[in-house]
Design a protein around this nucleic acid. Structure first.
Lengths: 131, 131
DNA sequence: TCGCACACGTTATAGCATAACGCAATTGAT
DNA sequence: ATCAATTGCGTTATGCTATAACGTGTGCGA
């Protein structure tokens, strides 16, 4: 079961995120898509829910915003934990993955007999250019 | 420079969090403190800002809520990265720290020439009892 | 063709957070 | 002692984020 064909609304939201150079809030997406007929937040949130489910989009919890996934070739295999650096200066977000962290977290959590459903790792700071 | 004496409002908010068995939203805290004279969200948010600054409280980004720090003895030395497991069933939050993860993250971030200001690690799932 | 699942549209509402104003108390330098 | 700067506080208003609840239409398998 891969990624199904996107609906019109899902494609529009995906396009807005893919063409943005940084994260977008749901309401910012709404504003960008008003010319395409969007009128209400739910149109955005419903599309985002599906895109998140398909793994095409990530939610940045510390920003209440969304970014397109930057691993376009890996949408099939669940590529485990995703981490982000988020620059407070320019807003740039960089996605990365690391096996070692994933395994270490997995071990710590297992020691609590805790069953992980979703892991959030977000690092706020300043990128090279904005230091 | 340790933790200064808390003001009345800060103490009340700290007390509400310390006596709660789980995370509280700012508005929930407000409601709990109405009998003590709280009337507006800002009274809570301003106290929380200070408590966060002093390291007595943590913000859970994925929940928009706050918890008392469970490392009461370590408020002086910055104890680095804090991570949480958050049970979707019972709401229980467990705070933990791990040197290995901290160092691995530090190395990955340094490779990007990124300067970390704050790191968020939150693991949503189900605890042993709620599995 | 009936029933079901799903996407969609709309209105209304709930929940989270801050802006902007003014006042009072404290501190510390001159 | 006094003035200026800082900090905490209270209040009103506002803005941003997210979901509830209702109804419509469409496609598709039993």
């Amino acid at each position: 079961m891969g990624t199904p064909q996107l609906t019109k609304n899902q494609s529009l939201v995906m396009g807005a995120l893919a063409h943005s150079d940084g994260p977008l809030s749901a309401y910012t997406i709404l504003d960008k898509l008003r010319d395409q007929g969007f009128r209400a937040p739910l149109q955005v949130y419903r599309a985002l829910d599906k895109l998140l489910e398909y793994g095409l989009v990530h939610r940045l919890e510390s920003l209440n915003a969304f970014v397109a996934c930057t691993c376009p070739h890996e949408h099939e295999h669940d590529h485990g934990v995703t981490a982000f650096t988020i620059c407070e200066g320019c807003g740039q977000v960089t996605e990365f993955h690391d096996e070692a962290i994933e395994q270490r977290l997995s071990a710590l959590v297992r020691a609590q007999s805790f069953k992980t459903e979703k892991t959030t790792i977000e690092i706020r700071g300043h990128c090279k250019s904005c230091a």
